[in-house]
Design a protein around this nucleic acid. Structure first.
Length: 561
RNA sequence: UGUCCGGUAGUGUAAUGGCAGCACUGCAGAUUCUGACUCUGCCUGUAGGGGUUCAAAUCCCUUCCGGACAACCA
């Protein structure tokens, strides 16, 4: 193990592969795969699997395959397939020319099934799904054998061919492997491996009316692609003996299956069924709604692939069913965005500020640093004039101690502009603040203090005359609630798509934003949060922002004390 | 209740028989042209019991707890 690896979190898969290479298995070759079923959009949990599989292939100079495990025509669609390709690519897992489809192997699988029949290791069964279920027994009682278990090889061959030819109705017959009726592992009790299903397949159309089951198909798919390490999630652990049984009895490439714990994230629902419900009920605006924990939703939110990859690295890979704090994800996102996001000034809840001693009609252009953490990001020009907007929260008429921002008599820095001091407040009839009056110090141009005096507060602002209004979607970090089924209040998980987080707001931004904001453009509005120009909803020249991660509002905490 | 898998600070994870460490969170402080970031400090842990050993988070036994599995889904 290298020094570098010692620094990394647990990764028993990495250790296994390293050991296999050291032992000369498969001639030191490593081939991994990510095998999604195209029946939904990828979510953050899939991202973990992608990072793992792709990461291992990369680390050990191996090959990575993207394979669509499309053996069930009922739920699969082209739209899903396309979205998966897009998301995997976006995450940076390059499968090069290695794009495969289980449906391309149907003919071969059919042949393998016949081999099994010829070896008297599979038989055609006439039982209904319900009868099968009843006959299966319990973990302590063995399964009752199928009345058709001892059909002759010839009859089975004939029947299986007729299944393929469409001579039987859906569900009328299945092909079952003949394994072990008394096995404590229910999956070994003569499992079904082919079923009849007249359903249009998104790729093979109506060519087939019989489809292989996962347990039969997967080892064959892996073997045909010479996958050395077939990495999947823990729930398939119980299936491994079956996987091995097919590998052995079909005498095919000895792929091996390894299992790791799937990702559970606090406040996040990752059940495909539930996500689909949200989409179908229009509780969200599609799979890529920024509140969704999908890869595409996160992309719209402004998360970066780098951040997601880093997250996957730091959470490690174990066999322990854990519940990862979503703060870990957000930390990764902030961490990357802090280094890379250009900064832009914006105001959500504007309140007008008049600079009394600034000449009316005058305006000037000030230099602002785009990213203090990245010099190469350069600077931009920000227009300044006598009338400005600042964030309402940045002003308090009667400030408590330790309020560093604008208040009567108090001086603050307008970022990249001037130091201003509040001289008074004008109010509306209802007592609300109409506008704030200030004076500026012309010697502090650019926000500098030639005399060296300190100001605690630096606030953001936009020139009233120049500001551009953009639409923004505000989203809380909340997707859904942790353990939604077990919510003590019995609330439905959909309720946790906080409707208040749906609000559209107008954000006033520097005119500069219009020059640079193309869909996907990310920036940070100081102290408010990170924003991403919506990759779906924005039109050229009129960016729509999605808020990403709210910055911690320390002031709220101070105020709460 | 059967089989399998698992259990290290609040959370995620290191330590493969040899000083229980790291990160996130939380709290406190410093710094700051973002009350962000950054930096410093603090808090908290080997599920219980027994055994082997000079030495156990690690090996063995046992109890407890958690998860997966009994679709013609994947």
């Amino acid at each position: 193990m290298t020094e570098e690896n010692k620094e990394k979190p647990s990764h028993f898969i990495r250790d296994i592969i390293a050991a296999d290479i050291a032992a000369g298995k498969h001639g030191g070759k490593v081939i991994t795969r990510f095998p999604p079923e195209p029946n939904g959009y990828l979510h953050i949990g899939h991202a973990k699997s992608i990072c793992l599989n792709y990461g291992m292939s990369k680390e050990f100079n191996g090959t990575f395959h993207l394979r669509f495990d499309d053996t069930n025509p009922t739920k699969e669609e082209v739209e899903y397939m396309e979205s998966i390709k897009c998301d995997v690519k976006w995450l940076g897992a390059d499968w090069k020319q290695n794009e495969f489809y289980a449906s391309d192997y149907f003919e071969q699988m059919y042949e393998y099934a016949k081999d099994l029949i010829k070896a008297d290791k599979a038989f055609v069964c006439d039982m209904t799904a319900e009868a099968l279920r009843e006959s299966r027994g319990t973990p302590t009682e063995p399964m009752k054998p199928s009345p058709n278990r001892n059909r002759s090889v010839e009859e089975n061959l004939d029947l299986f061919e007729r299944m393929r030819n469409g001579e039987f109705a859906d569900g009328e017959k299945t092909l079952r492997a003949k394994i072990d009726l008394a096995s404590p592992n229910m999956h070994m009790r003569d499992p079904a491996i082919y079923r009849i299903r007249r359903e249009h397949h998104y790729r093979t159309g109506d060519k087939w009316c019989i489809y292989p089951m996962y347990d039969f198909a997967h080892p064959i798919e892996d073997a045909m692609e010479k996958i050395t390490h077939s990495i999947c999630t823990l729930e398939f652990e119980v299936h491994r003996p079956l996987y091995d049984w097919f590998i052995e009895n079909l005498n095919i490439f000895p792929s091996r299956q390894y299992e790791f714990a799937r990702l559970n994230l606090s406040y996040t629902v990752m059940s495909k069924r539930k996500l689909l419900t949200l989409v179908e009920n229009k509780d969200v605006d599609g799979w890529d709604d920024p509140r969704m924990p999908t890869v595409s939703g996160m992309r719209r939110r402004g998360y970066t692939p780098e951040a997601i990859r880093n997250f996957c690295e730091i959470i490690g890979v174990t066999k322990f069913n854990s519940l990862t704090d979503v703060a870990l994800l957000e930390h990764s996102v902030r961490d990357h965005l802090n280094k890379t996001s250009p900064r832009v000034m914006g105001v959500f809840n504007p309140v007008k500020v008049i600079i009394e001693n600034y000449p009316e009609g005058n305006e000037e252009s000030l230099d602002a640093v785009n990213n203090p953490e990245d010099e190469s990001a350069g600077t931009r020009k920000v227009p300044f004039s006598r009338e400005l907007y600042i964030e309402a929260d940045d002003f308090m008429e009667e400030p408590p101690k330790k309020f560093f921002r604008l208040a009567p008599g108090q001086e603050v820095r307008l970022r990249w502009a001037y130091l201003i001091t509040c001289t008074g407040v004008e109010k509306n009839a209802d007592g609300s603040i109409k506008q704030i009056r200030c004076t500026y110090d012309p010697a502090t141009r650019g926000g500098n203090t030639p005399d060296g005096r300190k100001v605690k507060g630096t606030i953001h602002w936009v020139s009233a005359r120049h500001a551009v209004a953009c639409e923004a979607h505000l989203y809380d970090r909340l997707f859904t609630v942790e353990r939604p089924d077990a919510d003590p209040a019995g609330r439905d998980f959909r309720e946790f798509l906080n409707p208040s987080s749906l609000t559209k707001a107008t954000v006033l931004v520097e005119p500069y934003v219009l020059e640079v904001a193309k869909p996907g453009y990310r920036c940070q509005f100081e102290r408010i949060g990170y924003f991403c120009v919506d990759t779906r909803n924005s039109k050229p020249g009129k960016p729509v922002f999605n808020r990403t991660v709210a910055l911690k509002d320390s002031w709220a905490k101070i105020a709460a004390k």
